[in-house]
Design a protein around this nucleic acid. Structure first.
Length: 583
DNA sequence: CGACCTACGTA
DNA sequence: CGTACGTAGGTCGT
């Protein structure tokens, strides 16, 4: 192997409760925790390695917290999720995956036996010469906490490098000619895990006064005490119950009581969900009042003063926990409302003085991803257009709304509705893309695991039904009989997971590239929302950041897709507030 | 106290 | 036009 093929050096970093250890080429040293950040920065500058860690959260939180850049990492947990699927990716799961041991037999850490003490530590005396592994070959469940001396930390670091090698081998085996693509997925997923630490560190800038005003509009003035809070709550309830004389005692938070209330007003509904009630909004003032109450109640309970006080720091940043990869399809997740902030509150998300947001969202990402994953040349041709549905409509001889419904129905699996004829035309026009969706559906029904474009394994419980011989078509339509049952749900899940999951990988690859590109001009990614990025940047660099966001999409998409035949587009704008309209 | 349901916010 | 996620308040059973 030549130096060119070798790429950057691999160095492992393990951070234990009382110290850290780093192992790599010309590197084999314990680091005291109070010198961790400095040593990491120095070593990164000297070796420029790809840092191998059991997880970014466990090894790199302090480093990222101190503002040090982590340029390249190999996150064993994220790599494990790609190679083996599932959500659990503790060091024990990583080792089990590398050694071919059953995931179900990974020993769980024992609960502490005494409050304030780690029960497992009682089993060992300092200096005991005990293996890192249990008798059946698993990593000790408490290995990370148990590694309190340099020798044991070093063992874990060496083991991390071994696991990296085994994961790398597994990628070659799984990926075959596409192994390089799978490896790039590990890189970008690892970068996303570091980005999550940065998002937790930086938070989302909030205009606190604006947030208070918006909350007040729904929840009323900030209560002075508990009695005041109860009074405001009762007043909010009264706005609805005043339309229901004789039923003022109804608990609006109890769906059963609400349903009875509605029945007494002549509105007979199977449940009280908003979309069910919407048609009755103007048949009785009670319904309209109830739907308005629901909106206000949502903000009062979930996004009210308590939310503001608990999650917006003294520096006016909204913070929550981030994960790089959810269980199903590999999207990022965020807590404390960062991913489901109601639109009416978005004007409160405001850049700091002297800063602006560069806001960019990927347009029609899922059908474009379908073009990549299926390698359908005709469908790829449609992605040349800014509006993909226009050429699809032309090819189908249908209007745009019909073409759009047909594409969405094909991707997500329609159960109700009228896409029928257009769907048939779509099958004829883009047989390759539609074939991929059909195959994914059949795989899900049969519980056969599938992989995203980037290589993430999506598994199903139960015993898979073996594939038919190559060349023999699936019994087409057989799955349709169970479209509303558990089989159909699994089919739709599989089809969705491939598309949504592959889209998530592209998004993370893009975000990782943007993060590098905007760092030199003081930009920070402050929000990732599945297909949307919010970059906080000094206003004099806004145009440069916007250009970087656009430019990196081209390069990230080309690298991810392995082709430039499929075009990805972003809608990019420079705004002060998140809510400001697109240009 | 946790499991589950209903409901709703986002993509 | 389906899938995914996080949060809160209710009920019910332990």
């Amino acid at each position: 192997m030549t130096d060119k093929d070798a790429g950057p050096a691999l160095a492992a970093l393990v951070v234990g409760p009382q110290g850290a250890y780093a192992v790599g080429p010309g590197l084999d040293e314990p680091w005291p925790l109070d010198g961790l950040v400095t040593r990491f920065a120095e070593t990164s500058a000297r070796l420029r390695p790809r840092w191998v860690v059991w997880s970014a959260a466990a090894a790199l939180r302090d480093v990222v917290g101190a503002g040090v850049e982590v340029s390249r990492s190999w996150d064993l947990a994220e790599a494990h999720r790609i190679v083996h699927g599932g959500w659990w990716a503790t060091p024990g799961h990583v080792v089990a995956g590398c050694r071919g041991l059953d995931e179900a037999s990974v020993p769980a850490p024992r609960a502490p036996r005494l409050h304030g003490f780690d029960g497992d530590l009682f089993d060992l005396a300092a200096g005991d010469d005990v293996s890192l592994f249990t008798g059946d070959g698993h990593l000790r469940p408490d290995a990370a906490r148990w590694a309190t001396d340099d020798a044991r930390l070093r063992e874990l670091a060496v083991l991390a490098l071994e696991c990296q090698g085994l994961q790398h081998e597994a990628l070659r085996r799984i990926g075959g000619p596409h192994a390089a693509r799978l490896e790039r997925t590990v890189w970008s997923e690892s970068a996303a895990a570091v980005l999550c630490l940065e998002l937790e560190r930086d938070g989302l800038p909030v205009d606190r006064a604006a947030a208070e005003d918006l909350i007040a509009a729904s929840a009323g003035a900030r209560p002075l005490d508990d009695a005041d809070a109860a009074r405001i709550r009762t007043a909010r309830d009264t706005s609805v119950l005043t339309h229901a004389p004789g039923r003022e005692r109804t608990d609006l938070r109890n769906p059963t009581q609400v349903r009875e209330l509605l029945l007494s007003a002549g509105v007979d509904v199977p449940n009280t969900r908003a979309w069910v009630l919407e048609p009755y909004r103007h048949t009785h003032p009670l319904v309209d009042a109830l739907l308005r109450w629901r909106k206000d109640e949502r903000i009062a309970t979930t996004y009210g003063y308590r939310w503001l006080d608990d999650h917006v720091g003294a520096d006016d940043r909204l913070r929550g926990g981030w994960t790089a990869c959810d269980g199903a399809a590999g999207r990022m997740t965020a807590q404390n409302g960062l991913h489901n902030l109601p639109a009416p509150l978005r004007p409160a998300i405001c850049a700091a003085p002297g800063y602006v947001f560069v806001r960019a969202d990927l347009g029609q990402i899922e059908p474009r991803v379908l073009a990549v994953v299926s390698a359908d040349r005709a469908f790829a041709e449609a992605t040349r257009a800014d509006d993909l549905y226009a050429p699809v409509a032309a090819k189908l001889g249908a209007d745009r709304p019909k073409a759009k419904v047909a594409v969405l129905a094909a991707m997500y699996g329609q159960r109700s509705g009228a896409a029928g004829e257009a769907l048939k035309d779509l099958e004829r026009a883009y047989p390759v893309a539609m074939g991929l969706l059909d195959r994914a559906y059949a795989d899900g029904v049969a519980r056969r695991p599938v992989r995203t474009w980037g290589g993430r394994l999506i598994r199903f419980g139960g015993v898979p039904v073996p594939s038919l011989e190559p060349g023999v078509p699936e019994p087409s339509g057989s799955a349709e009989f169970s479209a509303t049952g558990a089989d159909g749900a699994r089919g739709r899940y599989a089809r969705n997971a491939i598309i949504q999951g592959s889209a998530a990988e592209l998004f993370k690859a893009w975000a990782a590239t943007v993060r590098h590109a905007v760092r030199p001009i003081g930009g920070q990614i402050v929000l990732c929302l599945h297909d949307e990025l919010l970059v906080h940047v000094p206003e004099q660099h806004a145009a440069a950041a916007a250009a970087a966001v656009e430019h990196t999409l081209s390069s990230a998409a080309r690298a991810w897709a392995g082709t430039d035949e499929v075009r990805f587009v972003a809608d990019t704008s420079i705004v002060r507030r998140w809510s400001e309209a697109k240009p």
